[in-house]
Amino acid sequence: MKKITDFRLIEKKEWAKSTYLLLQSDEPLEDIKAGQFVQVKVDDAANTYLRRPISIHDVDYQNRTITLLVQRVGEGTNKISDTEINDTLNIIYPLGNGFTMPEDKDAKVVLVGGGIGIAPMYYLGKVLKEKGLEPVFVLGGRSKEDLIMLDKFSSVGEVYITTNDGSLGEQGFVTQHSVWKEKKFDMIYTCGPKPMMMAVANLARENDICCEVSLENLMACGLGACLCCVENTIEGHVCVCKEGPVMNINKLLW
């Protein structure tokens, strides 16, 4: 069930462009699927009028916490990133559809994240591992500063890195990593900038691999009411917030 809840910030880590926010609710958490997102209320200021959709990086039911990785891209994300310990954030969650879990427990799964798109890949990897799968991460950024929380990813599965400037891992794009030649995968999950996801989708199609992407269209309500965040698909315009954000590439027109 979707809920409006105040979460208190109990832990925070900051990097140049992104922030890790560990948020605790007073109430037990709703059931959250990997790939779902939250709508964060910013404040009532003129330039931050609407909520900001942010993907869920991690969930801990026992401690009633969710974790967000927020990239500073504008006034809204700056204000959310500047939240101080013990301050609360008003959050609507869980929203949208999550990633599909493979039926075959031996399926080889790879999770491809780019930039702040690495955020939902961690919780997905954790859930897949709990289900007995062995997730492999391919994470990319412009430079090493984009790649945060790598220790956490490594605790869940093998991590392969690319950076555009070569400051960490192999130089190039995620789709150019040598791991694609060395390993065979049955399922690709991806989240990141659209050009990256398009490249990943092409790689999946060329190799006949099932692939799900997590989209990030501009949205207002996050509930499927305003019809603003539509993606044009084989079924026509569908709301990314309600029918997505996770979509199978077979449904997309790109």
């Binding site: 009028y49 501009l218 949205m219 019809l227 603003c228 993606e231």
Partner: peptide, 30 residues
């Protein structure tokens, strides 16, 4: 939601822009 005689796909994305204390939409009666 606004209902028309026939199915309407509405306008292409992007359909929304946040503006000071408000928003613009161009859904187009999808």
């Amino acid at each position: 939601k606004g209902t028309t005689l026939n199915h309407r796909e509405g306008n292409p994305y992007p359909r929304m822009a946040e503006t000071p204390s408000g928003m613009l939409n161009a859904v187009g009666l999808q």
